[in-house]
Design a protein around this nucleic acid. Structure first.
Length: 299
DNA sequence: ATACCGACCTGTCAGC
DNA sequence: TGCTGACAGGTCGGTA
């Protein structure tokens, strides 16, 4: 479901609502697919931790956690905890294992994942795989019908592969595609090159740049890559400004739909006239993904 | 090393 | 009404 603009929108909503809150307890469902780390590891890292910040890396949602505020620790020795943490970031957990004082909860939403902030009495949606009880009395729930989403924990050094498309400069962008025989569409979707671009925004940026999705990356001219670099950034920023694209069921952290789907020029418009030249939009399959383009506007 | 392709899941919708 | 097949915002591992 979500690509960079949708994840960014969700993260902004979550940051507003849960930053500073403390995770009291964690419930995890029985299905194993959504868990990349073990249930014990996740519960251990999250319970009694404070959510310091929420941010995005590519399509990953990263919750920065601070375990220093754990109730038992505070009770044990309020004064010395600060000193101890600054001189040594590692400390013993209640189970006796060494764990990092700072940890991260990493959420990837896959195709259909959602994170909801709910009142505790609200009935859990079908396909709820995780429930975090917060000190504020609310709950943070992970819901994912297709179970392509993934939950994991990391020590505070999580770094997704690839470069942020909104931060990459022109030279590094053009260098990404040099010598690659793969179709430009596949290269845009490759998260090890750029992180966060998915099917919609790959198609839309290729349309704006006037480049056909099947072109081999290595055959794209420098001028075309410059256009693509600008087009991709523009489109991602415009989509974020409109709260992302709601194609079927995407909603942000507040349960609201985005509006960028109204700006789509090619995605989901097979057979409809190009908004520039009226030529019917074509759909082909590249690397197993639907790919939409205007045969006249895109070379 | 690189690049396709199916697999992983459930839900929805079009067509018969 | 109900069945079947195609398709869906993503990523992985196996194979060629």
């Amino acid at each position: 479901m979500p690509e960079l603009p949708e994840v960014e929108t969700i993260v902004r909503g979550l940051a507003k609502r849960v930053t500073g809150d403390v995770i009291e307890t964690v419930w995890l469902g029985q299905k194993k697919e959504p868990l990349k780390s073990s249930a014990v590891e996740i519960a251990e890292a999250l319970e009694q931790s404070r959510i310091v910040s929420v941010h995005r890396m590519g399509k990953h949602i990263v919750f920065d956690l601070d375990r220093a505020g754990r109730a038992s620790e505070v009770r044990a020795n309020k004064k010395s905890s600060k000193t101890r943490l600054s001189s040594n970031s590692r400390k013993a957990s209640p189970s006796g294992q060494e764990v990092n004082a700072r940890a991260q909860w990493i959420v990837h939403l896959g195709m259909t994942g959602r994170l909801q902030v709910c009142e505790a009495q609200e009935e859990a949606a079908k396909h709820t795989h995780a429930i975090l009880k917060l000190a504020s009395g609310r709950e943070l729930r992970f819901v994912d019908p297709r179970r392509f989403g993934r939950l994991s924990v990391a020590t505070a050094g999580f770094d997704a592969a690839g470069i942020e498309p909104l931060e990459i400069d022109r030279d590094r962008f053009t260098a990404l595609f040099r010598g690659r025989k793969t179709p430009i569409k596949s290269a845009l979707l490759n998260q090890k090159l750029l992180r966060g671009v998915g099917n919609i925004y790959a198609d839309e940026s290729l349309f704006r740049a006037g480049v056909r999705p099947r072109r081999r990356a290595s055959t794209i001219t420098y001028a075309e890559l410059e256009k693509l670099h600008v087009a991709l950034k523009e489109i991602l920023k415009e989509a974020i400004a409109l709260g992302g694209s709601s194609v079927s069921d995407y909603v942000n952290a507040d349960g609201e739909a985005g509006f960028f789907q109204l700006q789509h020029r090619v995605y989901g418009r097979e057979g409809e006239p190009c908004l520039v030249c009226k030529t019917p939009i074509k759909r082909v399959v590249i690397a197993g993904r639907s790919s939409h383009f205007c045969p006249k506007c895109q070379k």
